[in-house]
Simulated scan of single mutants.
Amino acid sequence: MTLAGTLETELELKSPADKYFKRISSELHQAPNASSDKVHAVEVHEGDWETPGSVKIWTYTMNGKQEVLKDKIEVDEAKKSVTFVAVDGHVLEKYKSYKVTLHIVPKGEASVAKITVDFEKQHESHDDPKDYLQFVISLIKDIDEHLASQAD
């Protein structure tokens, strides 16, 4: 069994790529408004909401348990890509490394979210982070619905 791996999937979004990318790259404080059953708070720990390299602290519910994640954000404006690299928190109890990359691709008036989860397990007995991937998918859908419900 290998300790490192990658999970990938794609989601069709209703939101235009620019609007969705702006929300995930510089407006993460809106995540609890879009998905209050999952995300309880996103706070700046270091830096600010817009600067790549800034560190955020997420408080969320995963599989019925409250968890915390501290991540560093990497933004590629040209590619409309945002990467969240875990630097502390519950996810690192099972994984030596964990990062989620969201690449937002325009598709007509809407867009597609390409999701990549790269990880390395602490121990081979730990499962791949499929539950975390499902959490990310659900959050992406919630943000998309929230954006679609807002007037421009």
Score class of each variant (00 low, 15 high):
42 V>N: 14
43 E>C: 14
43 E>I: 15
43 E>T: 14
43 E>R: 14
44 V>S: 04
44 V>W: 12
44 V>P: 05
46 E>T: 15
47 G>D: 14
48 D>T: 04
48 D>N: 13
49 W>N: 11
49 W>I: 08
50 E>L: 06
50 E>R: 03
51 T>Y: 01
53 G>A: 14
53 G>N: 13
54 S>T: 00
54 S>K: 07
55 V>W: 10
56 K>F: 04
56 K>H: 13
56 K>A: 09
57 I>T: 11
58 W>M: 14
58 W>A: 13
59 T>E: 14
59 T>K: 15
60 Y>V: 00
61 T>E: 12
61 T>S: 11
61 T>M: 11
62 M>E: 09
62 M>H: 02
62 M>T: 01
63 N>V: 08
63 N>A: 11
64 G>N: 12
65 K>G: 10
65 K>D: 09
65 K>N: 13
65 K>C: 09
67 E>Y: 00
67 E>A: 08
68 V>M: 10
68 V>Q: 05
69 L>V: 15
69 L>T: 10
70 K>E: 03
70 K>Q: 04
70 K>N: 08
71 D>A: 13
71 D>Y: 05
72 K>W: 03
72 K>L: 03
73 I>N: 03
73 I>T: 04
74 E>Q: 04
74 E>V: 04
74 E>N: 06
75 V>L: 02
75 V>Q: 03
75 V>I: 08
75 V>R: 09
76 D>F: 07
77 E>M: 07
77 E>K: 10
79 K>C: 05
79 K>N: 00
79 K>H: 00
79 K>T: 00
80 K>E: 10
81 S>R: 08
82 V>N: 07
82 V>M: 00
84 F>R: 06
84 F>L: 07
84 F>P: 05
84 F>H: 02
84 F>A: 05
84 F>M: 10
85 V>H: 06
85 V>W: 04
85 V>D: 03
86 A>C: 10
86 A>E: 01
87 V>C: 12
87 V>R: 06
88 D>A: 15
90 H>V: 11
90 H>P: 09
90 H>E: 13
90 H>L: 12
92 L>K: 13
92 L>C: 08
92 L>V: 12
92 L>W: 10
93 E>T: 13
94 K>T: 15
94 K>S: 13
95 Y>V: 01
95 Y>H: 11
95 Y>S: 07
95 Y>T: 06
95 Y>W: 12
97 S>M: 14
98 Y>P: 11
99 K>Y: 01
100 V>N: 00
100 V>R: 01
101 T>S: 01
102 L>Y: 01
102 L>W: 05
102 L>F: 00
102 L>P: 01
103 H>R: 00
104 I>D: 07
104 I>P: 03
104 I>C: 08
105 V>R: 08
107 K>P: 07
108 G>Y: 15
110 A>Y: 04
111 S>M: 00
113 A>S: 11
114 K>D: 09
114 K>P: 06
